[in-house]
Design a protein around this nucleic acid. Sequence first.
RNA 1: GCGCCCAUCGUCUAUCGGUCAGGACAUUAGGUUUUCAUCCUAGUAAGCCGGGUUCGACUCCCGGUGGGCGCGCCA
Length: 435
Amino acid sequence: MSVRVRFAPSPTGHVHIGNIRAAIFNWLFARHHAGRFLLRIEDTDRERSTPEAVQAILDAMAWLGIQYDETPLYQSTQHPRHMEAAESLLRNGHAYKEDKGGTGQGECILFRMPGTDMAFHDEIKGDLSKKAADMKDFVIVRSDGSPVFHLANVVDDITQGITHIIRGDDHVENTFRHVALYQALGAPVPRYAHLPMIVNAQGKPYSKRDGAAYVGQFREMGYSAEALFNYLTLLGWSPGDDREKMTREEIISAFTLDRVKSAPAQMDLRKLTHMNGLYLAELPLSEFASGVRRSLSRLDWGQNLDEALFLNVCRLMQSRTPLFSQSETWKYFFIDPPEYDEKAVQKNLKKEGARTALETIQRHLSPSDFSDSSIHAAIRKAEAEMGVGEGKLNQALRVAVTGSSIGAGIYETMAVLGAPRSLTRLKYAIEQLTS
RNA sequence: GCGCCCAUCGUCUAUCGGUCAGGACAUUAGGUUUUCAUCCUAGUAAGCCGGGUUCGACUCCCGGUGGGCGCGCCA
């Protein structure tokens, strides 16, 4: 039988990283087995479900390249089927009506657990079982006539012909109920696989309070979809060898449920960031540029930048940019005069000999020949004239021209900046910032 | 409280009874470079505890401890 899996989020807010990881694992499983990956929007909670949240789910999936097969199923359209199932359970004695009282809400429908011990095989956790005494009957239809999650979820999975249910660890206990429902409904029980949770440094479920927790946030922070996808894949799973940075095809072909761990995994933003840097570095310039543009567009100085200059800056900075959002430190390339970092100025410019050094450099620099190699040569001459070692003048020059003590090679930086701007800044620094 | 699950460097992980317990991130020290980053080299760093089983346990079993999840007319 061919594999059919699904991602069944409820559209009640942003897309949590743990949820999207479940989607990724389902998708990987489907692709590995040449099966189908379906999307079901569990929008029965009318109070909390919103169209915006549905869109957020669609956006997150599209961004990460998790394509679903077939038309998405909206759970709210399945109400008749849910009720039909409840009626049939009522008829054959697997369910009964009762007024649980207390709040005077009237009668609801409860599912009658079989009263026997239960067991199922989890593809990740192995054989799991539970004693009859530890399982209670549960509500499947509220007194207001609406179906509860357990019923709707199982009925929809039957409707969609789901063969494998891959979901978060927090659903393990529900599985006994769901298996009983399948059996009472006379449907074949699917295979189950429960993914370990993603936790924070305290071992608690990873939440928005631990930094970024939603897919949209990672995107805003400048992570690339491929890097996030790859990293998430490594949380609770590994290919079995030392590979980490892998292409999608490699992951698909290596992905099996028996290699998924059952212990919770802690999110490590530093490792994600490192991996992101590897991905950004190998992006075609145009793609890197568009990621940066997206990030910069939020800044007051980041819009309508000179295209040729922008591309040159991207080319220069790409290999040292671990996050798109780090481009916010590139302001000095575009805005004159640059913002001078006080500490850098104190350390490199306000010192004995700085003025003379910069003046010497100024004399050797030729506005008509401003390639990085000729700038390089000019600096070497200045150093020779002053009797200092190679590279000794670089930092002072860097601070004078960019205002910052960090950046790409200063010769390349100046070449990108161009002679007029570089020389103007140098002149300004000599006159105003040295002492 | 009851039930279920989990446990290898700080973190993510490899190991499916015999390994100097490997890799990656982070970290430390060098090197390259012009600062930062990249890159290269090297280093520090792990089997929760206690019992068994076995010629031999990180690996299998039991107990303990710790942690997580569940116990809704939420999903």
